[in-house]
Nucleic acid binder design. Structure first.
Lengths: 340, 340
DNA sequence: GTTAGCACTCGAAGAAAGTGAGTGCTAAAT
DNA sequence: ATTTAGCACTCACTTTCTTCGAGTGCTAAC
């Protein structure tokens, strides 16, 4: 168990290191107002803290640096919630002031804010698509060879895809077809669209259009793009600002990792509801061994859950990040309230 | 005027430097098979070439490095068109093999190919929007408070925007309104949409709907997003691979410059038809003083012109880049042929 | 005109020396 | 029994000095 004094020293070391990225020495700790004892005492305490694994030396005569265990303890027990600055609060409030009505827009903006305010990289994951349902289907003929299929979901998401049409389809047939499709497909979850097209619609179309086979296959190709959950990334280049990423190789391998969107999505999904932190080795990917990943969840009105995340060096401003992500996820949840 | 021998030496120096990024010395030039004279002769010639400004020394006893004038001469007079490797040709061909029908998709893919094959950063600019016309307008009600306006252009481009609806509008009124809008707005160039809405439609709506004022303003807000030309950027992080960007400050300021999308768009637009190269100082932005920008134009079926560009260090593989961009722009032009 | 030869230049890489922020330990002070 | 002053020691960093070699320009011989 740590004594009061050790807690204080640990806190000072971590706070200082988060600020400066430099190893913290006993003398500089002793200078703090909150610290009333001498550097020698601090040295003794630091030796104990090191023995317990909370701090480390970078070399035998260096100051101390928080270990991952130290950060973990800090996050779990020492974190003093920070009041956000007025500027930060205003930035977020203003962004949400102009009513946004599209999921994409909200998420994009949130990712932007988060990366701008933090200088880290933000990643936002949308909710699972299971429940997204088809609201309406439209087909707009462009010319006699191609048309655009537009798909609107109940969440206000719009997808579209151009496709070739067999020349023989005439406008009235097309309209008929779209009407049939709409009447049969409205309300169908996107993930079931494929199946549904096969089982129910295929024969229906057959009776109403001549070229059903071809039309069907074209349409299918057009509509069955991946509806997989997208990742919104903000401030990708902020990583370059962090002194721990002075080494370009590290940057490169981190970028390579981030580009595996599926893996990252799985990682974000794996967090519990509320705020989570993964510190250094707690992250599954090699390139993230020097990183921390903070995730927070937001809710949609149907109680589906999405995740916002911040990726930075282990030396992260955890307390400010917690407050920021808290506020932002609340704003997002609030914005989405009563949407669908 | 340069002698044959000087031309040869200049060529070797530039080719070598492009490959290795190291200053080229007289001895290494003398070793080339194509070179039959001694290093001493080469030194004499190099002194002349330097006097004429085609090459430079990095310090008084270093090998030579091409000057910007040298690159300019090389690009204008020495460039031997390079046969692309089979792999490169196949990559491009395969990408264009599966029929793409949407401008965005084609452009996105092209940008991807270009940056992947070159390890530089690719930038693609769409054509001016002047001629893009409204094909069809759709309004899909989401619930009783919001709806989505979808706008399809004759180029197959789809834009959409959610907006609030006054609760009182009922479905049949909405349909009526959409029909009116479509009949009056189809074929109107996007850039004139704003004006047209004001002069012609406002009063028309008035006679058909009760809440025309509100509906109108909402719709206006929904439709009049910026239709400005978008930039598609690929391989932004490729810049990190170039040894000349070992200095993070340079990378940062280059990124900052690229993020000024309007300026970049203007820059890309300013090239002549065909392939252009801007070398170092010929670029207008400070952060690009060590960069070269190659631009090439592609055509849409209506003869509108778009631009693909490649941004890299002045020490660029100009001949391969020329071939690549040539092939790619042709493929793009071909793909767009007969589209609208 | 070309080239061999040579003195010279200068950056890069390495070794040596000095600096200072930090430590651990001991012994005195509280 | 803590705490602290004092001191020897460590080690990254910086600066200075050396060495090394790839490169040059110039001169004289071919």
């Amino acid at each position: 168990m740590l004594t009061e004094r050790q807690l204080l020293i640990l806190q000072v070391i971590i706070d200082d290191f988060i600020l400066t990225a430099q190893p913290v020495g006993s003398r500089s700790i002793a200078k703090k107002d909150a610290v009333t004892f001498s550097s020698a005492t601090i040295r003794n305490e630091m030796a104990d803290l090191e023995e317990m694994g909370y701090i480390e030396k970078t070399h035998s005569s260096s100051g101390r640096v928080p270990s991952e265990k130290g950060y973990r303890f800090y996050v779990d027990h020492l974190l003093a919630p920070l009041r956000l600055s007025n500027k930060e609060i205003m930035t977020i409030r203003e962004a949400f002031d102009d009513k946004m009505l599209e999921f994409e827009r909200v998420v994009q903006k949130s990712a932007g804010i988060l990366s701008d305010l933090t200088n880290y990289t933000s990643i936002i994951l949308g909710p699972e698509v299971f429940e997204t349902k088809l609201k309406q289907l439209q087909i707009v003929p462009l010319n006699d060879q191609s048309a655009i299929a537009i798909l609107v979901t109940n969440t206000g998401h719009v997808e579209h895809r151009a496709f070739n049409v067999p020349v023989e389809i005439n406008p009235s047939n097309l309209e008929k077809m779209v009407n049939i499709l709409n009447s049969r497909l409205q309300g169908v979850p996107l993930v079931k669209l494929h199946e549904k097209l096969h089982t129910e619609i295929s024969d229906l179309l057959k009776t109403h259009t001549d070229q059903h086979e071809q039309a069907f296959s074209y349409l299918q190709a057009a509509l069955l793009d991946d509806h997989s959950t997208k990742l919104y990334i903000g401030g990708k280049t902020n990583i370059l600002m962090q002194p721990e990423f002075r080494d370009l190789d590290k940057v490169r391998s981190l970028y390579a990792t981030i580009e595996q969107e599926n893996d990252i999505a799985d990682l974000l999904r794996s967090g519990e509801e509320g705020i989570n932190v993964r510190i250094g080795q707690e992250n599954p990917f090699d390139a993230m061994q020097n990183c921390s990943l903070i995730t927070a969840s937001y809710k949609l009105s149907n109680n589906q859950i999405g995740t916002i995340a911040l990726l930075g060096p282990t030396r992260m401003e955890y307390n400010r990040m917690f407050s920021l992500m808290n506020v932002l996820s609340k704003h997002m949840t609030e914005t989405f309230k009563g949407w669908y």
